[in-house]
Simulated assay, not measured.
Amino acid sequence: MTSGMVGHPSTSAIDHGLSGSLGPRLQAIQPSFKMNPGDLGILKSTLLPSIGIYSCFSLATFIAAERTRRVELKDWLWPSGQVATAWWAAIGRPMYEKGVSFLDAWTGLSWTQKLLLGCVTAWGARLFARIASRSLKRGGDDPRYEASKKEPGFWKSALFNMFLPEAAVLSVISLPFTVPFTTSGTTLSLTTTTLDTVRAAGAALFGIGFGMEVLADTQLELHRRERSDLCRHGVWGLVRHPNYLGDTLVHISFAVLNIADSFNPIVLLGPLANYAFLRYVGGDKQTEASQEERYQADDPKKFGQLKMWRKEQNSFWPSLRDLTKPWAFAVAGCGLIAVVVEEGLQTTFDMQ
């Protein structure tokens, strides 16, 4: 709905005022996870463990989905699995492999790594709560999956055709928040000022994407309480799928935050995989195909609105005209708020 490392010298654990016996302990922890960018070890230390974790999660989810006849349980795994993988890479792995405490593992992270982990957690927790509450309120499976379940032998092939393939996709999407905790060094040579600027840009991008997701879900929920037609106002007046656009911007922000600490080009595959999945597999393409089928059969008014909406509004990326709308500025304001919050939190952590 994701092991400590040596960060940039300006944001390392030592620069955060660590002294006494804790400093040497953290220095002893971190070198064991060093790996030069491009080493074949990145496959062993990052991607393969993620595939193993997600495959186990997917298998368990498939068993629960088959018994309850609710395919949508895999949607519960999408955000929760990413958060779990990020915390395992950042905290769980050094605790398990080196026997350090939670506090030592947390303190060993640079500020940018803590920020990245916090952003992943905030995004995943909110999305999981949204998906779970909507699912429980509905009381049945997501309409997008009803047609698929009617196909002969669906449950016999679903594990290999749907659940495990998504586990592989999630492993790639998670690279921006697994690689920085299992590798060290950077392919970039940037000044401290530039790094601070890049980190602020990542925070702003996260704020914009996160804000758009929250606004989209909130406005849609309020609209459905009052009306039965399509929601086409607010951020839904910027693009037809603002929630998917927000999700894309959030995942791009994870890669941007990598640049501010320990950047490996492989992390760029994460937002690219997420974008490709949302655009061409399980996002707006699947959603609109399901809407078109259901509305054409049961709700001619909505079907007509959908056809007109497609002519007037872009599906995923806003046009230049849409960027001048008030709600576009409101979303941009979320980015500014995120930068202010990031600066405040960093100052607070530096003082501790």
Rank of each mutant, 00 (worst) to 15 (best):
G52W: 13
N243G: 05
T186H: 02
D75V: 06
L40P: 13
L43G: 13
M308H: 15
K302Y: 06
K137V: 09
R310W: 06
L336Y: 09
G304M: 07
S174T: 15
G237L: 01
L22Q: 09
Q296F: 01
Q296S: 12
E292V: 05
A330E: 14
G344K: 08
W76Y: 11
V120H: 02
D284R: 15
L205W: 04
R69G: 00
R25G: 03
P49E: 14
G139S: 06
E342L: 06
L59Y: 03
T68Q: 08
G7L: 02
G118W: 07
K285V: 06
R138A: 09
M35P: 00
A65H: 08
G270S: 07
G234P: 02
D247R: 05
V256C: 00
Y295V: 04
S184R: 05
D261N: 10
W111S: 04
S101G: 11
I252W: 14
V169N: 03
E292K: 12
I252E: 04
G20V: 04
S12K: 12
H223V: 10
L320N: 07
I53A: 05
L238G: 08
L222Y: 09
L278K: 04
T85N: 11
Q113V: 05
I51C: 00
K98F: 14
S315V: 15
F102P: 00
M1S: 11
I337Y: 01
T11R: 12
A297K: 15
A216T: 06
A158E: 02
I63G: 00
M1N: 02
T186S: 05
S253E: 08
L159Y: 02
G270D: 11
S55T: 04
W236P: 00
A64I: 15
G335P: 03
S19T: 14
V281Y: 11
P31I: 10
D141E: 02
